[in-house]
Computed example of a mutant assay.
Amino acid sequence: MNHSFSRRLFSASTSALRPRIVNTIAEYRELRHEWIMQGKSIGFVPTMGALHHGHLSLAKTAKAECDKVVASIFVNPAQFAPTEDLDRYPRTFESDVDLLATVGVDAVFAPAVAEMYPAGITLDVAKQSGTFVQVLGKSHMLEGSVRPHFFRGVATVVTKLLNATQPHKAFFGQKDGQQCAVIRTLVRDLLIPTEVVVCQTVREADGLAMSSRNRYLDPQERALAPVLYKALQAAEALYVAGERDASVLRDAGMKVLQSAGVQVEYLSVANSLSLEEEQGKIGADGAMMSGAVKIGKTRIIDNILFGVEVRK
């Protein structure tokens, strides 16, 4: 996060009304009942904390569209593999609540792990028990090809959070483009009465998509990190000029990444609806070009859309 921006937010938070902290589903449901009896609409912004301007942008949009806004802060163990960064994932709860106060969030739902996983949870999928959600057909490729456990954990926790909070609208960022597609599908297929609202990716001045994990980058790595967005922009320039061949667009992006010498996990041009990789020309459905690279020990993910609109 930009430090001057952070200082402005924290100074503003001293005069902002602090959100109500709710730790259990029962307590939240009582609060929700009060809101519903008052005829209020409810917007929901799910987060894992370590908030940045991207999260706050979602909360602002939720506040503009709904009478009441609840944000969750919950580091979901089910989406981490045993080798990943669950233990060191940044946890900044008090400052997160201060930031949410500056944009008028009404409540923060911050459940314990036992509240969300009453059957218990272990990071070893083979040893897990209880109920989990899988979205077949959109979870195995792209991020799922690198992190096969990830979307099972995401789909499960989002289903739990939507069932717990029962919002009219839930707000997500396009930076996690595949995740948005998975969530839209599970909401449709499980008949969850919540409208999924996807908002534009919020970026730093140099184009790097805002992410809680960006704080892992040292100064040299941070300077290199926008290279993925530059690769996507190189392909986008060709698309705007009329190029529709997916392989040409992939090659243009890959050249940028290879010249930077970063470790590329994948670079994809996929159908915007099915997420299946485009093998020929991009059709009427449009496409999502996405990628993941490693900068030091940090994964950077990003995407842009071709022929598909996302909210501003």
Rank of each mutant, 00 (worst) to 15 (best):
A112H: 14
E115M: 11
L142K: 09
S95G: 04
H140M: 07
L123T: 11
D176V: 04
V135C: 10
A101K: 01
L99S: 04
Y117C: 02
V187Q: 07
Q134N: 14
V135I: 14
R152W: 04
Q178T: 10
Q128H: 01
V146S: 15
V135W: 11
A155R: 04
L161N: 05
T131H: 12
K138C: 08
V108I: 15
P118V: 03
S95W: 03
A126C: 05
T165H: 01
G144Y: 12
S145D: 14
Q179R: 09
M141F: 06
T102I: 06
F132L: 05
H149V: 03
P167A: 05
V105D: 03
R152V: 03
V157P: 06
L186P: 03
Q178I: 08
V187H: 09
G153M: 06
I121A: 11
T122H: 03
A170V: 11
T165S: 06
A110P: 00
A170H: 02
F151L: 05
V113H: 04
T92Q: 11
K160T: 06
S145W: 07
K169G: 05
K138N: 06
A170E: 03
P167I: 04
D189Q: 14
F150Q: 08
D98P: 00
L100C: 02
G173A: 10
T159V: 00
H140I: 12
G137F: 10
G144V: 10
I192R: 00
T194L: 01
V97N: 06
A126S: 15
G177V: 03
D96M: 11
E115Q: 14
G130Y: 08
T194G: 04
G137Q: 07
D124L: 09
Q174L: 15
R91L: 03
R91H: 05
T185H: 13
L162M: 05
D96E: 12
F150H: 14
T159P: 00
V187E: 05
K127P: 01
D96N: 10
V135N: 11
C180G: 08
V158K: 07
A107C: 14
G130Q: 07
E94F: 05
I121F: 12
I192F: 00
I121R: 10
T102Y: 06
F93C: 02
P148D: 08
D176M: 01
S129V: 13
K169M: 12
L191I: 08
L162F: 15
T92L: 10
S129W: 00
T156P: 06
E143L: 07
S139V: 09
R91S: 08
A110D: 04
K175D: 12
V103E: 05
V97F: 06
P111S: 07
V187C: 14
M116S: 13
G120M: 02
F171M: 13
Q179I: 06
T131K: 11
N163C: 07
T131G: 01
Y117D: 00
E94N: 12
I183W: 10
D96L: 10
A101R: 01
V157Q: 08
T92D: 11
F171G: 09
D98V: 00
D98A: 15
R147L: 11
D124Q: 14
T194H: 06
A110H: 15
L186S: 00
Q174G: 08
V125K: 15
V135F: 09
G153S: 04
G177W: 14
V108A: 12
F171T: 07
Q134G: 00
G120R: 01
Q178R: 08
V105F: 03
F171S: 11
P111W: 11
Q166D: 13
M116E: 13
A164W: 08
D176S: 03
